[in-house]
Design a protein around this nucleic acid. Structure first.
Lengths: 345, 345
DNA sequence: GTTAGCACTCATTTAAGTCGAGTGCTAATT
DNA sequence: AATTAGCACTCGACTTAAATGAGTGCTAAC
């Protein structure tokens, strides 16, 4: 059977209507919805066909139809084909000061969630190479040193260590030079025993300090896994959609959103098999996360350059407003791009 | 009427039982529960008295009794009187590396939540005085400077700025010295126009850089409001308690936990009228947060020295296991204290 | 090919009925 | 005087049955 124009119109009408109400939609409703061009009986026949073709589903014999995953898929693909025809402006300039990436990401997630009325998640950039770029030792208190470590991508980490021995300002300066000349540009793997022992030798009396510092630096560089965070926002928006808000489902979904480990899968997948635009839509079971089988998930990948990539996701009911979500995400990508391009110059 | 020993025993039995089951408890249950010393009829009479005295409530005529807020209050006060008789050890040494306070707090909240099966919140330390302790400028890229600012309490902030002009290593060193000698120990209020203009004068050609840096520093010191974060964990634990998990209540409560602004009130109140031990228990309506009127909230204030105080809170059903929660919190306080005392030496 | 009409289906709502945990009261017992 | 056994009574929770109505599929007419 073929999906002629009328069938498409009706299918779209069904999906649109269902997205608004969340209730199964019947033939009469559609008949009115499409300007009474066809009677309910005609619609019924078409609906029967559409069901046979798998685009819509009847939850039970005497109810209207709801879109199947296949139906949503059709609808989404349709939208994905259309070019961005308008670029809506996101109100606030979200990035005021790049001071704390973490805060920016949180704010971004919050914005997304409140704009769309769905749940939003955003992962911080993932670093793939971890070359050490810069180390700075500073004395803060008499016996406390501050270690500032900068790795490629300008990720900055601070560590405070307490030392036992005395060390003069001059010695500290020398240590700084020593560390930077020897370590900069190296990855964690390249800082091997040879390098370390040579460093210690050169450090002389302060080999203990060097040891301490190296340990911390190693920990810091390695720790990027710990530091890899996913922020969520608007999780409770799901209560706005009755089909998701019964205790059982809500609990499951919210738990998943809270224990961000599971979301990693989404991030991973999004990074991998991305489409041309970097935008992915998972409908129901298509999602790699089990708890989201009754939801739709839209992910987008952003790129900060220097190999830093992160993922933004919107989680909502299957009847989410795909047009709006896709528009918003595309828009956001554009703005992020612009912002970071500007930052880089 | 007087609250004699038997009434107390029965009241405790009712509360304990209700805490376990979450169901109204009847006279027969209690009769069995207290080792059949008294018959159900006797219990009934006593329960009738207890109800008259306001310690328990009958949700409807033909149901058992549940504790009223007053009943819980009695029970909690009882526990608060008892001395810590055991010091349970919290498994992991929660503070491995104080690298990132933020991560520690998050981990702590997570631990608390999973140990207690209630929701946990924890606020970062609030800074009251903000003396600048140390500034460090470092070159990271040809035209990028890293500003590390340390304020009292060893709170470290990083900012990256892009500069237009050339600046040599030596000049940078001089700038560092200039900034530190002039600014250290000052609060934001003390860094007034006079200080600034003098600094600029001394900086000579690099007054622009000084300007840039001062702006950032000011922003950073001021920003502690932004930075004041509340972390929550285990919010979805509330689904474990049927009396909280209907869609309506759950939604309200979870939203509140998500939009942490409201939680500020808890923090504020906890900081203020704290009891001797720094532990506060809010039962039902006693809570300053409206959405928690069906919950109990236990807060504890921790003290990191240097005027840094924060709040830890547990949010659960009224029938929460107060003994366990109080024990856990007391314990945690002790450990935190120990950890930070150790850190300080 | 389209539409009106009608019998049929079935989730949801409403009403009535049953069940049983739990109470309050009274009278008997200790 | 305190305790307990016994019993009628209450009322939410659960069960069952009937009523409702949105929506369908099919057939026959247009």
């Amino acid at each position: 059977m073929e999906l002629d124009e009328r069938k498409v119109t009706i299918l779209k009408a069904i999906i649109k209507n269902y997205m608004e109400t969340g209730e199964p939609v019947g033939s009469r409703t559609i008949s009115k919805y499409v300007n009474s061009k066809w009677s309910s009986a005609t619609i019924r026949n078409e609906m029967s066909d559409l069901e046979e073709m798998g685009y819509i589903i009847q939850p039970h014999t005497s109810a209207g139809r709801i879109p199947s995953d296949k139906g949503y898929r059709f609808y989404v693909d349709q939208i994905l084909l259309e070019k961005d025809n308008e670029v809506m402006e996101i109100k606030e300039l979200m990035v005021q000061r790049m001071g704390r990436l973490e805060l920016v990401l949180k704010a971004l997630a919050k914005n997304l969630a409140s704009n769309t009325n769905y749940a939003a998640m955003i992962s911080g950039p993932q670093y793939h190479r971890n070359k050490l770029k810069f180390i700075q030792l500073s004395r803060v208190d008499a016996n406390k040193l501050l270690i500032v470590t900068v790795v490629e991508g300008n990720i900055i980490k601070n560590t405070m260590v307490t030392i036992d021995e005395e060390i003069s300002d001059e010695e500290l300066l020398n240590l700084n030079i020593l560390l930077n000349t020897n370590l900069n540009g190296l990855t964690i793997e390249e800082i091997n025993l040879g390098v370390i022992s040579r460093l210690k030798e050169e450090a002389g009396v302060h080999r203990q300090v060097v040891d301490l510092v190296l340990n911390e630096v190693a920990a810091v560089i390695k720790a990027d896994g710990d530091d890899f965070q996913i922020y969520t926002s608007g999780a409770t928006n799901i209560f706005k959609y009755p089909e998701l808000s019964d205790s059982q489902k809500a609990s499951e979904l919210l738990s998943t959103l809270e224990h961000t480990e599971v979301l990693q899968e989404l991030v991973g997948e999004a990074g991998g098999n991305q489409s041309e635009t970097g935008i992915q839509v998972y409908i129901g079971d298509e999602s790699p996360v089990q708890a989201m089988k009754d939801c739709s998930v839209v992910t987008a990948t952003y790129d900060l350059g220097e190999g830093l990539k992160g993922t933004i996701g919107i989680i909502g009911p299957k009847r989410m407003d795909y047009e709006k979500v896709l528009r918003t995400l595309r828009n956001l990508m554009t703005q992020l791009d612009a912002t970071f391009k500007k930052e880089e110059r």
